[in-house]
Simulated scan of single mutants.
Amino acid sequence: MGGTEHLTVHREGATLVLTLNRPEAKNALSPAMLVGLYDGWTEADEDDSVRSIVFTGAGGSFCAGMDLKALAGQGMAGDTYRDRLKADPDLHWKAMLRHHRPRKPVIAAVEGYCVAGGTEMLQGTDIRVAGESAVFGLFEVRRGLFPIGGSTVRLPRQIPRTHALEMLLTGRPYTAREAADIGLVGHVVPDGTALEKALEIAEQVNACGPLAVEAVKASVYEAAELTETDGLAAELARGWPVFDTADAKEGSRAFAEKRPPRFKRA
């Protein structure tokens, strides 16, 4: 199991938990964090015993965005991390879920600040839980910058366009309740319990057939870029093979026998 000084990795049953771990900087992104994230997504993709991923931050914050000083290597150790970023110029975008979509469901557990690059990474997750005091926002335009982590493309596809444009063009902060009202997050829970709720959802995902779960996730994202007719055809292409799996037969048998299913990814 991987991890770096700014990104911890641990297992909770079939869930891989990735935790941004630079609380003194509100988990602003650093080379060590980006490399750790990339390795974490890769581990989850390659390990069939991982059924879901929970993505969170340590110290009461999710992520305050990019730390430009750290990314430039000023005042921080970590030549190995910078060498890896140079060797793969796309690594940071994969780490931030701009150029990579994990095949397992990703559940975000947000406390505190989730702004700029934090809100951009959030858009690469599938299910989102926020503590009541969480703060969201794309502040880039207030600094004369552009939210280049994918927000001008993804945000209008995930929430109504008028809300997406207001968030993008005003650069103002949003409360957790506002984020839920516009559909950016799905759950608002008492502060300090976002991770607990995310793990509860992960357990519900983990109890389902893994082949079915992964096929459903892939179908949803694939269909989003297709016409309805093409999307329905693509759904059949992904869905019918699931019915032929041993897991599908086990699920039906377990239901008839009134017991929990024992899925084997087969």
Rank of each mutant, 00 (worst) to 15 (best):
A176T: 06
G251I: 13
A180R: 15
T162A: 11
V216K: 01
D230Y: 12
Q204H: 05
T175I: 04
A207E: 06
V220W: 03
D230Q: 14
R177D: 12
A194K: 02
H187W: 09
A179F: 02
D230G: 14
K217M: 10
V242G: 02
E225R: 14
P210F: 09
R154K: 12
E250T: 04
T229K: 15
G149Y: 01
G209L: 10
E214I: 03
Q204G: 00
P173W: 02
R154M: 09
G209Y: 13
R154S: 14
A254N: 09
P241T: 02
Y174P: 11
T227I: 10
A237M: 07
G171N: 04
R142I: 02
A134M: 05
P147D: 05
S219W: 10
K249I: 12
I182D: 01
L184A: 00
F255C: 06
L226V: 14
R143S: 08
P190R: 15
H187N: 03
G209S: 14
L199Q: 02
A246Y: 10
V135T: 12
I201K: 04
C208S: 06
Y174M: 15
R161D: 07
A164D: 05
V242T: 09
R177V: 10
G239A: 07
T229I: 15
P156F: 13
A218Y: 09
L236G: 08
A215D: 00
A198D: 00
E178S: 13
R143D: 11
G150T: 02
E214Q: 12
S252R: 15
T193V: 01
E222N: 09
S252Y: 11
V216D: 00
A237C: 05
P147K: 06
T193M: 08
F139Y: 03
G149H: 00
E178M: 14
A215W: 00
F139Q: 05
M167A: 08
L232I: 12
V188A: 14
S219C: 14
G183D: 09
P210Y: 09
P156A: 13
A246P: 03
Y221E: 10
E222L: 14
A194P: 00
D191Y: 03
R143P: 00
V205F: 06
H163L: 04
A237V: 12
R172V: 04
V213L: 06
L232A: 13
L195F: 07
I148F: 08
Q204K: 03
A194W: 01
E178D: 07
D191W: 06
T170C: 03
A212C: 06
T229H: 11
R172S: 04
I148G: 14
A215E: 03
D230F: 13
Q204Y: 02
E166H: 11
S252K: 15
R177M: 07
F136V: 02
L232M: 13
T175F: 14
A212G: 07
V242W: 14
L184W: 02
E203R: 15
N206D: 15
A246V: 07
E235Q: 12
G209M: 14
I182Q: 04
A246C: 04
R238G: 00
P173N: 04
E222F: 01
L195H: 11
E132C: 09
R154I: 08
R253D: 15
T152F: 13
M167F: 04
L145N: 01
G183C: 07
F139N: 03
G192K: 00
P147I: 11
A223R: 13
